[in-house]
Computed example of a mutant assay.
Amino acid sequence: MKAVELQKFTDEELTQMLEDSKRKLMDLRFQLEMNRLKNHSQITSVKRDIARIKTILRGRELGIRR
């Protein structure tokens, strides 16, 4: 998901999305270790989504607006 799309969500929704993404990343890593992961690029995609969400939450915490 793009950062512009994430800006529209509230802090609570973003926090929930962050938790879900972390859980998904853990599942993907587990699948990778069990040799059941078909698309390895999913891990990178989820990591980037987590970074985007954290960046938006931190920016709001500091009061930075674009």
Score class of each variant (00 low, 15 high):
13 E>W: 04
64 I>D: 05
13 E>R: 06
63 G>P: 05
27 D>Y: 09
17 M>V: 00
48 R>N: 10
50 I>W: 01
9 F>A: 01
4 V>H: 11
41 S>Y: 14
54 K>T: 09
45 S>N: 08
26 M>I: 06
11 D>W: 02
39 N>I: 04
51 A>Q: 13
50 I>K: 02
66 R>T: 13
65 R>M: 14
53 I>K: 00
66 R>P: 13
28 L>M: 00
32 L>I: 05
7 Q>E: 15
17 M>P: 00
7 Q>G: 04
15 T>L: 14
8 K>H: 02
24 K>I: 07
34 M>T: 14
47 K>E: 12
39 N>P: 03
25 L>I: 00
40 H>Y: 11
17 M>E: 03
5 E>I: 11
39 N>Y: 05
37 L>T: 03
7 Q>P: 00
31 Q>G: 04
59 G>Q: 12
57 L>F: 01
66 R>Y: 15
34 M>D: 10
21 S>C: 01
9 F>S: 01
44 T>S: 14
60 R>S: 03
46 V>K: 06
14 L>D: 03
55 T>A: 13
23 R>M: 09
30 F>G: 02
12 E>C: 07
57 L>T: 04
23 R>F: 13
65 R>A: 14
58 R>L: 11
11 D>I: 08
48 R>C: 02
3 A>W: 06
59 G>M: 12
66 R>I: 15
17 M>K: 13
7 Q>R: 10
35 N>D: 13
49 D>W: 11
2 K>D: 14
19 E>L: 14
20 D>W: 06
9 F>W: 05
10 T>C: 00
10 T>S: 09
3 A>D: 13
45 S>T: 09
13 E>D: 08
29 R>G: 02
19 E>H: 12
39 N>T: 05
55 T>D: 13
40 H>L: 12
1 M>R: 07
49 D>C: 09
43 I>Q: 01
51 A>T: 11
50 I>G: 05
14 L>K: 08
34 M>L: 12
10 T>Y: 02
14 L>C: 03
2 K>I: 12
44 T>K: 15
59 G>I: 09
49 D>T: 13
6 L>M: 04
2 K>E: 10
51 A>R: 11
40 H>C: 07
44 T>H: 14
38 K>R: 07
16 Q>T: 14
47 K>Q: 10
16 Q>G: 08
28 L>T: 04
29 R>T: 01
53 I>Y: 02
57 L>Q: 03
31 Q>W: 10
55 T>V: 11
29 R>V: 01
31 Q>R: 15
61 E>S: 08
60 R>I: 04
4 V>G: 01
66 R>V: 15
32 L>K: 15
5 E>F: 04
56 I>D: 01
2 K>Y: 08
65 R>L: 15
22 K>F: 05
58 R>Y: 07
13 E>P: 00
4 V>W: 07
27 D>A: 10
18 L>I: 01
37 L>K: 02
